[in-house]
Design a protein around this nucleic acid. Structure first.
Length: 570
RNA sequence: GGACCUGUAGCUUAGCCAGGAUUGAGCGCUGGCCUUCUAAGCCAGAUGUCAUGGGUUCGAAUCCCAUCAGGUCCGCCA
């Protein structure tokens, strides 16, 4: 059984091209391509050989096709103009694909284990209020990538780096300790706590006395006052619990939490500052240690990247270096999902970690912010759409739809379908877009349930499930009966899944998987239209049921990798 | 001033990293399909100077240079 059914065909095509090239008398090795629809499954363009062989590409293609002859894995190997095209033998492909999918089930698409231990840090939002959709890309990209990399055979640990040392956290704590919230208090802790942060920020801006009090707290905190640390941490934990609850609704949970303050209190930040101080590329300005970015080919308005304040206390990036050294001591590599505003910092942290003698890779994955039509979201100003509100709205709309479409089913089932559809739609509508593209949040787009959306894919999965429910048990299948173009195309699409997972893992681009899941569902819908299953003659019915079973598995695996639920009915 | 990311149909987008045969989709729009496995579906149609201008190449949406537009960063904040 092949882990990757398409791979065998590709390898055979490459082999055949190799032998064809040899017969033409050239050592040149060239990659195969995927041709446009209808031109076969693998293509070999002959242009690059024209100069060397002093023949036209068309002649070369003809000669190649002649030399290659026939092969049982391909039903046709022919020249088409300057190309040699390979058409996979449908029987062979359908048979092998069904064996792989039905044999591997939930594991179909997975690569063999790599023994790579990866720490994947994502989200790491300041715990001063609920998650808003401006940053919601981060947990969704991070969690999807973790799922992909696990399927690629890696041992992945997801981690949330809790920034409990920032001014924002101290401001929140000052608010909690000095202000009293009136009126109804939100039952979810992050929503209840954000008022203190917003109100304390306002007071701090208006009243220098408040600012002085907060600054005094920060100084004591950085001087490792354990009392302040405990008070700040307690507030962070409350907000964090609320954030985790929100992410949990989207199927996102973390394996580990790393607290920034740890690296101050355990002395590791102090140690690396000493080490950095001893390096030739660092200098001191008014007592503050800095790195000269010019030496690393980075230029800007200001080329000094400060590592400490004038009093020798640490800065965020320096603590981040300590954190990354700690991570890399325990993992083979680190992946950080970061907003695009962190690009320079991430680069400098990477430089710092190298300077400190750690060579293991840190790979950043960047995304652009989600903004509102009226501008950037801001927790402090309260100009935000909270993730919880988006989820509530999506689930409520899905619930209305279920009520309309399936009035007969139980309340419990209605709720679970609405939950799967609402949360799935949110994840899908964010992950389907390439991370670097800037995104303007629009309710109607975020709540899209039609066409290129999660419910479209979930719907195909539900239809497959429904057919299987009605069919009952079936015996073996004869794949050679599956000759309808829609059956062959569907099998081909399923066979692609392992290479899509591989490619997503290589490029760290999860949107490719979303596109694949959509294409697969669309292909299943065509099959569903063209190939009746339950009314087919007995042998054909069994064969088609195998197709449906396999489709359900691959759709389910794709949705699972996207972190989207795959209900049995919709 | 310097650096990085993005620019493809009215809107949203895939393809760009690894150049190759007609640039694929979704929404919206026009028309058709529920007495056959769930119409969150299917089919047909209209819609593209691939931001602009050069260059490299047999061949450029894809690579290089310049320009324009949007975003981000260049803080002894995080």
């Amino acid at each position: 059984m092949d882990l990757d059914p398409l791979q065998a065909f590709r390898e055979r095509a490459v082999e055949l091209i190799g032998s064809g090239l040899k017969k033409l008398g050239t050592e040149t090795v060239l990659p195969v391509e995927i041709p446009p629809d209808g031109m076969g499954d693998f293509a070999f363009p002959c242009f690059p050989l024209a100069k060397e062989l002093r023949k036209s590409p068309v002649e070369i293609a003809k000669a190649m096709a002649g030399h290659i002859g026939n092969d049982p894995m391909f039903c046709k190997i022919e020249s088409a103009g300057p190309y040699v095209n390979f058409h996979i033998s449908p029987n062979e492909l359908v048979g092998r694909t069904l064996v792989s999918v039905l044999g591997l089930k939930g594991e179909f698409g997975n690569a063999p284990p790599t023994s790579q231990k990866i720490n994947l840090e994502h989200t790491s939002a300041n715990p001063n209020g609920p998650l808003h959709v401006g940053r919601a890309r981060n947990p969704i990209i991070g969690d999807t990538l973790a799922r992909i990399l696990r399927r690629c055979g890696n041992d992945v640990t997801t981690e949330f780096y809790v920034d409990d040392m920032g001014k924002q956290q101290v401001t929140l704590t000052w608010g909690v300790e000095n202000l009293t919230q009136e009126g109804e208090i939100h039952s979810k802790p992050d929503h209840a706590m954000v008022w203190y942060y917003q109100e304390a920020s306002r007071r701090m801006e208006a009243d220098p006395k408040v600012l002085a009090e907060i600054n005094a707290m920060i100084s004591r905190y950085e001087a490792r006052d354990p009392d302040i640390a405990a008070r700040v941490r307690a507030n962070c934990e409350k907000v964090l619990a609320g954030m985790n609850q929100s992410m949990g609704r989207l199927g996102i949970k973390f394996d580990s939490f790393a607290w920034e303050s740890k690296y101050i209190f355990d002395g590791s930040v102090e140690k690396i500052i000493e080490k950095l101080r001893s390096l030739e590329c660092t200098s001191v300005d008014n007592g503050a240690l800095y790195l000269d970015l010019n030496e690393f080919g980075i230029s800007g308005k200001e080329n000094k990247f400060f590592l400490t304040r004038g009093d020798g206390s640490s800065l965020y990036s320096t603590r981040d270096m300590a954190y990354h050294l700690d991570k890399l001591a325990n993992y083979d590599s680190a992946i950080d999902v970061l907003g695009e505003d962190h690009r320079l910092k991430a680069r400098v942290v990477g430089i710092g970690v190298r300077l400190l003698g750690q060579e293991k890779p840190i790979e950043p994955v960047f995304y652009s912010f989600v903004s509102l039509p009226e501008g950037k979201m801001s927790t402090r100003r309260g100009r935000v759409v909270y993730l919880d509100d988006l989820i509530d709205e999506a689930v409520a709309i899905a619930r209305d739809e279920v009520e309309k479409r399936r009035p007969e089913v139980s309340e419990e089932l209605k709720s679970s379908i609405a939950d799967a559809v609402g949360t799935g739609a949110i994840r899908y509508n964010i992950i389907r877009i390439q991370a670097e593209k800037q995104l303007v949040f629009k309710w109607e787009e975020a709540l899209n349930f039609e066409g290129n959306s999660a419910p479209f894919i979930q719907y195909s999965h539900a239809r497959a499930s429904s057919i299987l429910r009605k069919a009952g048990e079936s015996a073996g299948h004869d794949a050679s009966l599956l000759t309808h173009p829609s059956e062959v195309q569907l099998a081909k699409m399923m066979a692609r899944f392992p290479s899509v997972i591989k490619e997503c893992g290589r490029s760290k681009e999860s949107h490719l998987l979303a596109a694949y899941a959509y294409d697969l569902a669309a292909m299943f819908n065509q099959f569903y239209r063209d190939c009746p299953v339950l009314v087919a003659e007995e042998k054909l019915k069994s064969a088609r049921l195998a197709m449906v079973k396999a489709s359900k598995i691959v759709l389910g695996n794709a949705l699972d990798t996207l972190g989207i639920m795959a209900p049995e009915e919709l």
